[in-house]
Simulated scan of single mutants.
Amino acid sequence: MTTKIALVGIGKIALDQHVPALAASPDWDLAATISRHGQVPGIPAFADFATFLADRPDIPVVSLCLPPVPRFDYADAALKAGRHVMLEKPPGATLAEVHTLEAMARERGLTLFATWHSRMAHAVAPAKAWLKDKTVRQAHITWREDVRKWHPGQDWVFQPGGMGVFDPGINALSILTEILPTPVHLTRAMLEFPANRQTPIAAQLTFSNNVSADFDWRQQGPQTWDIIVQTDRGQLALRMGGNVLEIDGQPTAGENTIMGEYPALYARMADLLRTGASDVDLAPMVHVADALTLGERITTDAFDF
Rank of each mutant, 00 (worst) to 15 (best):
E255C: 00
A277W: 00
P222R: 10
R218F: 11
E145A: 12
A237I: 04
D214P: 01
G9M: 10
D226M: 10
A31K: 05
R36V: 00
G11L: 06
G109I: 01
Q138F: 14
R36F: 02
H185M: 05
Q204M: 06
N256F: 13
L292M: 15
A267R: 14
L53V: 02
G254E: 03
D167T: 14
E192M: 10
A237H: 13
L95Y: 06
K80M: 10
G42Y: 08
P284W: 03
F52A: 03
L95N: 01
V69M: 13
V280Y: 10
A123G: 13
R239P: 00
A32Q: 08
G164S: 12
G162M: 07
R71S: 14
G242C: 01
H37I: 00
G9D: 09
T187H: 10
L79W: 05
G42A: 05
M190E: 15
R36E: 06
A45I: 00
P181Q: 08
W150V: 09
F193K: 02
G82D: 05
Q159K: 15
A14V: 05
V98K: 09
I43E: 03
P284C: 03
D214L: 11
G234E: 03
A270K: 03
N171M: 12
T299K: 06
H117L: 02
P60R: 02
T135A: 14
A24V: 01
V147K: 13
E261Q: 15
D301T: 13
A302R: 12
K89H: 14
G162L: 10
G161D: 11
P57T: 02
Q159T: 09
V157T: 13
W28R: 07
L64R: 07
P251C: 06
V62N: 05
H84T: 01
N196T: 07
A253V: 04
N243L: 01
L236A: 02
D232R: 10
E88Q: 13
S212V: 03
W28E: 04
V280N: 12
L292D: 05
D58F: 08
A21S: 15
Q235F: 01
A78N: 09
P222I: 07
N171G: 15
A121W: 03
A96I: 00
T2S: 14
A93K: 12
K89G: 06
R119H: 07
Q138G: 14
A289F: 11
G162D: 11
V85A: 06
D155S: 10
H287N: 12
Q138I: 00
Q17T: 05
L66R: 02
A277Y: 01
C65V: 13
T199P: 11
T293A: 14
W225V: 00
I43Q: 04
W143Y: 14
E255H: 07
F215A: 04
T135Q: 15
Q230T: 14
A23L: 03
E261Y: 00
W225R: 09
Q138Y: 13
D167Q: 13
E261L: 08
P44D: 07
T231R: 02
A121M: 04
D281Q: 09
P160R: 09
A31L: 04
R197N: 11
K134Q: 15
V62Q: 06
T142L: 15
G242R: 01
V286F: 08
C65I: 11
